Structure formats: C-alpha cells, structure tokens
Amino acid sequence: MRYRIAVIGAGQITEGHLMAMNELQDRLKPVAIADIRIDRAEQLSETYGMIAYEDYREMVLREKPDIVVITLPHHLHMEAAIFCAEAGCHILLEKPMALNAKQCDDIMDAVRHNNVRLMVGHTQHFLAENMAAKKFIKNEAKRLGQLVMMNDTRHKAYYNTDRPAWFLDKQRAGGGILFNLGSHSIDRLMWLGNARIVKVRASISHYGPAGDVEGSGVVFLENESGVPSTIVQSGYGGVPRNELELIFTEAMMKVIPGKGVWLSRNGVYEQIPVPREDSPFVLQFRELLASIERECEPECSMDYSRDVIAVLEGIYRSHELKAEVNISTPMLSEELGHI
C-alpha cells in the first residue's frame, strides 16, 4: 500500500522528512503541506509536488491523508495531534511529545480512542552510532560486564541568530536547551541503559542574552535498575560537544553521533566498526509503517515518549525545589502538569 501523507509546518526540519518521503516513494506519497507562513509552504510544495495550505485543519479535512507529520513549535503539538487523530490520521510527531505529561495523556487518549497510530520522532534510536552501540551492548554483555554509570555531554551555541524566537520562550518551547536537546540525552540514556529514569536532581542556569529559558544544566539521574547517569549541557559560548560515555565493570564505551563508537582496550579507546544505515528520517518512516501495518506500538511509543517528558518536568521541578525528585510517583506527574 502507498500512503498519502501531509505535513504540518514548513520549518527547518521539514525538508528532512520530505527527502525521506522521496526515498520511500513506493510507500509514501506527499500530497500537501501547511504553514501559517504560506510562502514557506508554497516553496516546499513546488519542490516536492504538493498542494500548499495556510490552515492545517483545512488541509487535513480536504486532503484526508493517511499519515500526518507534525513539525510545529512544541506548544502546538497537543492541539494538532488530537485534531489529526480525530480526523483518522496516523501521526509522526516531532519530539518532544508535548509540554507536559498531562498533555501527553490527552494525546494518548485521542489516539487510542480513534484507533490510529502515533510515533514520536526520537531520532536517537535511528542514528547509526547509537544503533551500533545498542547492538554491541546486547550481543557483548559478557565482554562489557555490568553497566555502572553513563555520562551524557552536549554543548552547542543555543542562542544563535538563526534559531526561531519561540525556542527561547518558555511558554511556547517548554524550556531551553534541556527541554530541546536534553530530551535527546534522556532518550539515549533510557534506550541504551534499557530502563526508565526514576530519580533526578538538577541545577540549571539562566544567563542567555535573550528569552526566559535556561542556557545550561547539570542533571544527576538514576534509572529503575539503580544505574546513575549525568547530563551536562551548555548553550553558551565554547566548544561544541555531543557524546555519551557508558562505563561497565569490564570496559568503557564512547558514542559520538556522526563520528563513531569507541570501546576501551588495554587502557585506551579503540574505534569499532559502525554499519552504514539509511537516514534517521527514512528509518523513522519505516518504523511507523510497520506499526500501522502490524497494528502494534512503534519503538518510540507514546508511553516511552511520555516518560521522557516526565523526566524533563522532574528536572525543572528539582531545580525549583533544590532537591531530588522521584519520577516514578504518579502523584508527582499530576503535580507537575502546570509547569
């Protein structure tokens, strides 16, 4: 079956999805794109042979796509996802899933009530280096020994002039570097650590030149297996860095997306082979299609994606309280819904 697909939002990430559709044109047919800036929608529609709309609701109701890709600012995720689910569309929703766990619950209710599938675009699962690390951890467990800690570091100039203004507005973005890039870090700690995060203790800073979101943070986390982790992120000036180090009882592993995977041997790191993979956008679509056709949850399921949001809420709450926050307590998730 070839699925008719529409896109909501014509921002920076949209073209990655459209290029992936072209690679999967035997399975996906892009039919329409909507953006409140109609000029952006028209530009992409001309390149990829689609109809441009200004109002995504009109587009969904008129075009009746099988799948909708939502690439909107974070505060619009819930409204758009619920609308598309109620229209009977399957959904690929850009991460993070929503602003808080309560909004995630509302999305999940709508998706399940309307018997459609929703996948959140946690691309960490589809990066070649992370996939190679995940496979090595599974297949070489005896060689690695027991996982004892993980350290995730991400430094990136967050206040660059080409970043859309909504990213620096907490009401629209949900938070700053930790909400946006930190969701990637939480995702890969949960995925490669194979366990939910249940405790966090965080300290964040607000020294950015614009907006009201945090520009850095240090987070201590513990998963349900008792394994501790750290997330260290800065959006101020400095040297870009994006790496995860996993420390086992018998070895250490370093993962740098786009560069490689290294394993310790005789006191030094040695690079290990990473198989070539299709683009994360292509792999995401394949996973979503498999979920639709097999009538099962995708790997980046709604429950999993809600867990990421719950951890993010816990990070901000921990900083506010200057105390450790227990993510696993259901009452806490309800309490955090207002943040």
Rank of each mutant, 00 (worst) to 15 (best):
Y3V: 08
Y3F: 15
I8F: 03
Q12D: 09
T14A: 15
T14V: 08
H17S: 10
A20Q: 08
A20S: 10
N22F: 01
D26Y: 11
K29L: 08
A32M: 07
D35P: 13
I38H: 02
Q43F: 15
Q43H: 14
L44E: 08
M59A: 14
K64V: 07
K64A: 10
D66K: 07
V69S: 13
V69T: 13
L72K: 13
P73G: 10
H74N: 14
H77F: 05
E79G: 02
A81S: 14
E86D: 14
H90Q: 04
I91W: 12
E94S: 08
A101M: 01
A101G: 04
D105G: 06
I107F: 02
I107Y: 02
M108Y: 04
V111M: 07
H113Y: 11
H113M: 09
H113P: 00
N114D: 01
N115I: 07
V120G: 11
T123F: 06
L127T: 07
E129P: 07
M131I: 15
A133W: 08
K134W: 15
K138S: 13
K138W: 02
L147M: 14
V148S: 10
V148D: 08
N151I: 07
D152W: 08
D152K: 07
T153L: 03
R154E: 02
A157Q: 06
T161D: 12
D162V: 12
D169Q: 10
K170Q: 15
Q171C: 01
A173M: 08
G175C: 13
L178N: 10
F179W: 12
S183M: 05
R188G: 01
R188P: 00
W191K: 05
L192R: 06
L192T: 10
A195H: 13
R196T: 01
R196E: 01
S203L: 07
I204M: 11
I204T: 12
Y207I: 01
Y207L: 09
V218W: 06
V219D: 02
F220L: 13
L221V: 12
L221S: 10
S225H: 15
S229P: 04
Q233H: 09
Q233W: 03
G235N: 03
G235P: 04
R241W: 01
R241V: 04
N242M: 09
E243I: 05
E245N: 03
L246H: 03
L246T: 02
F248M: 09
A251P: 01
A251V: 00
I256K: 15
I256F: 12
P257Y: 11
W262M: 13
R265F: 08
N266M: 08
G267W: 04
Y269T: 04
Q271L: 06
V274S: 05
P275Q: 14
D278C: 04
S279I: 00
L289G: 02
I292N: 05
R294F: 09
R294W: 11
R294D: 15
C296S: 11
E297T: 04
E297F: 05
C300I: 02
D303E: 14
D307H: 10
D307L: 02
D307F: 00
I309C: 02
Y316D: 11
L321F: 01
A323D: 12
E324M: 15
E324H: 13
V325K: 15
N326R: 15
I327G: 06
S328A: 14
P330C: 05
M331I: 07
L332K: 05
S333A: 11
L336F: 00
